[in-house]
Nucleic acid binder design. Structure first.
Lengths: 248, 248
DNA sequence: CGCTAGTTTGATCCGGGTCAATGCTGGTGG
DNA sequence: CCACCAGCATTGACCCGGATCAAACTAGCG
């Protein structure tokens, strides 16, 4: 039942992705809304010393569930999917990390989920030990991290409402609104254009739907003049209709 | 679709629940595994000064989604359900708080979910402002809180796997195993007896099933000699069978 | 131009939702 | 002590939405 075909990520050692020195963090596009926002100029210099910029091709892995958590990441561009795979082969995506999002600090030493790039992406990569050392010396960063964790928890709760037993239209409509909100936060403007860089399978594995139902539902919404389907995303035509659907 | 009948909590002002002074925190049954575990003897005295013990009758509310978060809670006995209600009336339980669990510190100032007592329960109640002040003076408590938040996030991810599109048997089996694990943590021993103090409706609203399906599935498991149904919970008869089912 | 991966679309089936009746249990008052 | 009642839980009959299986289509890309 509902197995996710071909979800195997590309196993690629980190060394094969580009690793370059972090420069001008101050001009970083995600600076203002990522965890770094609480660091002042001089802290930022120290911070950039311990991190490296890493580039990831589509499907390449940031880390895997069950493995030692030896590095943490701050996404700067692209889209990273966080997921767990059930014993039966089904994949549940437990979150999409957008630019500015922070990931890789699990409860213990072991990653509790896997993460890979849905599309070509960049992230700042910090060795765990160095990051924890820095954290020790900058307690206000811990407060910011705690904030990030509680808001990640709130988003997970939001997702619980979506994944549960709701109609496919409602799930898709909520998903569109969620992505609209989250991209608005990154791009700085609300726009009827909602980028959906992830594939249909990813949307399905996030919402608990099959690829077939995702496709059917999107096209039903298109027929009803609620959205337009464009390459790499959708355009909201009738926002009220989408909002109404999302309620059920 | 799947509306939750009669989920209205009892609206009861906090003042009507018993509020007594916190005494001998050192002998508190949940001390060793709750957030207080990081506080030493003298810290604990200060901490107990700002809190009060509150008792809650079944269905009485700790706090409501959307309201000002003016107090945080540490459950000491009973069972607290955390939930959100969708516009269509369906209730999604986003977590059960067992003795030792901590709740009530949302991302912002506003509660992002509601919480009420599933059965008669007790909790330590701390005014938000006083708690944050104490937190300011005890940075290691913040580290413990961050730990609690990340592990709550991991549990939420776990729940996402359960709520998704799985067979009813698999959901129920996973739920039984989850509750077994969590009670073991509280009681200090693993036991084939798994207390389920919450009602069928609560289990359904946690897993995304109807009351009818929960009941049917439990009785199917009983017919298959996998469990026994006893008052206030179940007894695992064939653990292997349950574990096998939980995988699918 | 043809290959491949992803997407769309159709036909069929089944698990679990819905509706509704019945059963059980514990508390209350006569 | 028992009749009654209210709140859950159980059980049955039926139906529908979305999963499944499979085929056709499309868009990049070498």
């Amino acid at each position: 039942m509902l197995h996710s075909p071909d979800i195997r990520p590309v196993l690629r050692s980190v060394s094969s992705s580009t690793l370059t020195r972090l420069e001008n963090c101050a001009e970083c596009p995600v600076r203002s809304f990522s965890i770094c926002s609480v660091l002042d100029r001089s802290d930022l210099d120290d911070f950039s010393d311990i991190g490296r910029r890493a580039s990831f091709e589509p499907r390449s892995v940031l880390f895997l569930e069950g493995h030692q958590a030896d590095a943490i990441f701050n996404v700067t561009s692209g889209l990273v999917r966080q997921y767990r795979v059930l014993p039966n082969g089904r994949r549940q995506i437990v979150g999409f990390a957008l630019p500015g999002d922070f990931l890789g600090l699990p409860p213990g030493q072991i990653h509790s989920f896997s993460a890979d790039a849905a599309v070509a992406s960049d992230a700042c990569r910090f060795p765990r030990r160095a990051f924890l050392g820095f954290l020790e010396r900058h307690p206000h960063l811990l407060r910011r991290l705690h904030e990030a964790a509680t808001s990640a928890l709130a988003i997970a709760h939001e997702q619980l409402l979506q994944v549960g037993p709701r109609h496919a239209d409602a799930k898709i409509a909520s998903f569109i609104l969620l992505m609209r909100r989250r991209w608005a936060n990154v791009l700085g403007v609300v726009s009827p254009m909602v980028p959906l860089p992830m594939g249909r399978q990813d949307i399905g594995d996030y919402l608990g739907l099959t690829i077939a139902t995702v496709s059917r539902t999107l096209h039903r919404l298109r027929r009803e003049q609620a959205i337009e389907i464009v390459s790499g995303g959708i355009r909201i035509v009738n926002l009220t209709r989408i909002e109404r659907l999302a309620e059920f």
